[in-house]
């Protein structure tokens, strides 16, 4: 099982590396959105606004990134993939790949966001909690949206349906995430903030388990 997951993961990584411009489009999306925000706001000193804007940009970038995860496998190629690996391994491999992609994207996006929109809200931040928020957030977004992307990839209107299906499912997660990251920016202690980290972790694990159970029913279609 692990061998198969690793193989799917590495295959995605390699094919992404071969089409660097495609992966670059997701990064460019983040860069462009942050730049638009910069032109609109110049500088944001207000912590909740800064925090909310960052996660909204990350959310839509995550949608864009996840929507591509099954785009390469259509028709014959999909069938070939499933003869090589179990569907559970395919979805877990894709989830891990998506989580990694988003991890890089969120951290890079965060650096660029802080660079352009000002570091005022970062002054009182708890660095460890902030890193945890970014990591858990990108992980959760990547994991939850992979199954949604698998659903949407079976339809003609991939990106549009992705938003319709994904937003209501991801929104509660996003609310917890925003709360967690805002508390981290405010420098609240772990005793207050730890429970949110726990919830984010629990939701990620749950979405992993659900995808593991449900995906095998999906790939045959």
């Amino acid at each position: 099982m692990w061998v198969e997951i690793k193989a799917v993961f590495l295959k995605d990584l390699r094919s992404e590396w071969r089409q660097r411009h495609a992966a670059g489009s997701v990064f460019l999306y983040v860069l462009a959105s942050v730049f638009v925000a910069y032109l609109a706001f110049r500088e944001i000193a207000d912590v909740p606004t800064w925090n909310a804007l960052f996660w909204i940009i990350s959310l839509f970038a995550a949608f864009n990134a996840a929507a591509r995860s099954f785009a390469n496998e259509n028709g014959g190629r999909r069938l070939y993939l499933y003869t090589l690996a179990r569907p559970e391994a395919v979805v877990l491999g894709k989830m891990m790949y998506n989580a990694l992609l988003l991890l890089i994207m969120v951290f890079a996006g965060f650096a660029f966001f802080a660079l352009t929109l000002g570091t005022v809200p970062l002054r009182g931040a708890d660095p460890a909690a902030l890193v945890a928020a970014l990591a858990l957030g990108s992980l959760g977004l990547g994991l939850i949206l992979t199954l949604v992307s698998a659903l949407a990839s079976h339809t003609d209107n991939n990106l549009g349906l992705m938003a319709i299906l994904g937003l209501p499912v991801i929104l509660p997660f996003l609310l917890i995430l925003m709360r967690f990251s805002k508390n981290a920016l405010d420098g609240l202690p772990w005793s207050v903030n730890g429970v949110y980290a726990l919830q984010l972790g629990a939701v990620s694990v749950l979405s992993l388990a659900l995808s593991y159970i449900l995906f095998p029913y999906l790939w045959r279609e």
């Binding site: 659903l151 209107n157 299906l165």
Partner: peptide, 27 residues
Amino acid sequence: VLKSSVNDSEKAAALGAVYNIFAFVMM
């Protein structure tokens, strides 16, 4: 929306069922 956006009714049924379970548990 998901069910109506797929023409093949068996495919729509499977997609709908998966989303129904996933969304219900998350909700």
